[in-house]
Amino acid sequence: MTEARSDLLTLVLGICAFLIIATVIGQVLQRRLSPDRSNASIENLNARINAWWVMVALIGIAFLAGRAGVIVLFAFCSFAALREFVTLTRTRRADHWALAAAFFVVLPVQYYLVATDWYGLYAIFIPVYAFLLMPIAAVLRGDTERFLDRVAEVQWALMICVFCISHVPALLTLQIPGYEGRNVLLIAFLVIVVQMSDVLQYVWGKLFGRTRIAPRLSPSKTVEGFLGGVASATLIGAALWWITPFTPLQAGLLALVITLMGFFGGLVMSAIKRDRGVKDWGHIVEGHGGLIDRLDSVIFSAPIFFHIVRYGWSLT
């Protein structure tokens, strides 16, 4: 336990040092190059750094509150994400009860199942039970207009915003021999690797980006940024092996899987935004996009990371 505490403390101090350096650099760059806030890249960088401070503070408070705190934090993330997602869907009045059930029944039940460690049910609750019961709630109203579209959109919203996000706190329920009491560091590993991958892809792309990787989806993403970001985030993941139950090689391979899933998840979420004609999912921080914009890479990598660790390392 004390070893876990000291690892966590080292990690928190490291992150704070990193963020302080990043904040100083961001402020200096702004004074020098963007005194009137006109340089979009520097403003974007500072917005990201501010979002990290908020993220670190929230996750830190949740970690201190223990397992219940982490689960409540991610339940609220799911709520805010689901609200953003459903806002962009084209539901009709006949979906009212299905949507009410999504917010006030499915979401709390999923997190209750995670909290009580009922893996056999929370792994299938949304893919099976919600999948079958939500269309029934909608069909009882008798409105057939775009029925398949509407049902599919609500199911997608639940999978992305509730099912996938709930697999982050679910990491706390894994029982890994020799790693007791330290599971919270798995969440830290996942979030750090995803965030580092996002920002390093951005930095590599800004420095060396020539070839666009998906011009129709995300004009700012480049092959150079992708390769550089994934490679360097994989190395960071390997260097963080000491907070995980993995060897350095295993930590690097898992970081590679996380970054790849995060990258393609970002593309998928961009495609949905393009389809709906919006630039951002929401405005949770004024001018800096919605919660899903900040979480899209975590959303796609969390369930895969969870299952690999569960099969490879966990007793349950």
């Binding site: 459903v86 009045r93 009212h96 009410a100």
Partner: peptide
């Protein structure tokens, strides 16, 4: 969409 006429449970939407 949050609260259509005749419904009494509001749906959270932005």
């Amino acid at each position: 969409r949050v609260m259509p006429k005749g419904e009494f449970v509001p749906i959270p939407l932005i």
